[in-house]
Amino acid sequence: MLTQLQHFESARRRIADANITFLELVNHPTNPLTREDLAANIKRRPATWQRFAGFLDKLPSRAGV
């Protein structure tokens, strides 16, 4: 049985891993995440992607990539 601290650390690590993955997708050298890609991901799985909605106006459009 996990302690409360272990549960906290596990949740913190999952969140951090998701954030790192998002930044890797955004900064991919040959196929970066675009505004349209993120909007489609938010529509498809809002529970996972909605927290990144603040990046929609900062990401490049597919036309500009």
Rank of each mutant, 00 (worst) to 15 (best):
I20G: 04
H28P: 06
P32D: 07
L5Y: 05
Q6S: 15
L38G: 03
H28I: 02
R14Y: 13
R13H: 08
E36K: 02
N19E: 14
A16Y: 03
K43Q: 05
F55N: 03
N27T: 13
L2M: 13
T3G: 07
D37S: 12
V26Y: 09
G64D: 14
W49N: 04
L56S: 01
A39D: 05
P29H: 02
T48P: 01
L2C: 06
T34Q: 06
N41K: 13
N19D: 14
F52C: 05
Q50G: 00
A63V: 09
E24I: 08
T48K: 12
A39C: 05
G54M: 08
S10F: 07
Q50Y: 11
H28F: 08
P29E: 02
N31P: 00
G64T: 07
P46Q: 04
L56A: 04
V65S: 03
F55W: 13
R12W: 07
F55G: 01
A39Q: 09
A39S: 14
A47V: 01
T21D: 15
G64C: 04
L23G: 05
A18M: 10
A47M: 11
M1K: 02
F52M: 01
N41I: 11
N31C: 12
A40D: 09
L56F: 08
N31T: 11
V65Y: 00
I20L: 14
P46W: 01
L33M: 15
I20T: 14
K58V: 04
Q4F: 07
A53S: 10
P60H: 09
N31D: 15
H7C: 11
H7M: 13
K43F: 04
A47S: 08
L5W: 08
S61A: 12
N19Q: 11
E36N: 10
E36P: 10
H28V: 07
S61K: 12
L25S: 04
H7L: 09
V65W: 00
F22M: 10
W49S: 01
L25N: 03
I15K: 08
A39L: 11
D57V: 13
I42H: 00
N31E: 13
V65F: 00
E24M: 14
P60K: 14
K58A: 14
A40I: 06
K43A: 07
I15C: 06
P46C: 03
Q50V: 12
E36T: 09
P32T: 07
L23D: 14
T21K: 15
L23C: 11
G64I: 01
W49I: 08
R35D: 06
L38K: 00
L33K: 03
R13L: 14
I20E: 10
F8M: 06
W49L: 03
A16Q: 11
T34L: 01
